[in-house]
């Protein structure tokens, strides 16, 4: 694939799915420096994945899958290198936080997601973004029944936690 075509697809996907990427970034990285690092990693993997995309699934599903896998791999790596890290380049920033969420409960949701293990985090993001069990099963490579069991557990835990937290005025 010529680089010009790859670049065109890349920017098209970036424009269409940046909201999706930000959600993944926010669920797996917890400060701006790490978010920028993860965003860079995800975009690199998306760039590399473009020649392999054959259109068997929707582009959004493809981008989500690549993003989740990159985030999981990144978070495994980051656990070992979380201290003494230098700034990425020290010169210009690629990602700037320009505002915060209007509804504070979004932050609460991200905090709950952050407490889950890497796989449950992916499932929760997919669930909240309205993916069906079948799509989740395809993205993750596990059976629909397995997805169902996990989702039920995650939903139950989230509802229970929200009842506890909001009852206590958190």
């Amino acid at each position: 694939m010529p680089e010009s075509e790859q670049k065109e697809i890349f920017y098209d996907w970036l424009k269409k799915y940046k909201g999706l990427l930000f959600k993944v970034v926010r669920a797996y990285a917890f400060n701006l420096h790490d978010q920028e690092d993860l965003f860079q990693e995800i975009t690199l993997q998306i760039w590399n994945s473009i020649p392999n995309f054959r259109g068997d699934s929707a582009a959004s599903t493809w981008v989500y899958r690549v993003s989740l896998y990159s985030a999981i791999s990144w978070s495994k790596k980051e656990k070992k290198h979380s201290t003494g890290k230098q700034s990425l380049d020290g010169v210009s920033h690629m990602l700037t936080e320009i505002s915060s969420f209007k509804d504070g409960r979004v932050e609460w949701l991200y905090k709950q997601i952050a407490k889950l293990n890497e796989i449950d985090r992916s499932l929760t993001l997919l669930l909240l973004d309205g993916f069906s069990y079948k799509e989740m099963s395809n993205i993750l490579g596990i059976s629909e029944s397995n997805v169902g069991v996990k989702i039920n557990r995650i939903k139950k835990d989230l509802i229970q936690k929200s009842q506890e937290d909001f009852k206590n005025g958190v």
């Binding site: 920017y11 970036l14 930000f22 975009t43 690629m94 700037t96």
Partner: peptide, 15 residues
């Protein structure tokens, strides 16, 4: 909501 702004040229350079 637009939470982040992307510096696209910087992103492309880094990738």
């Amino acid at each position: 909501e637009n939470i982040y702004a992307i510096n696209e040229s910087e992103l492309h350079r880094r990738v």
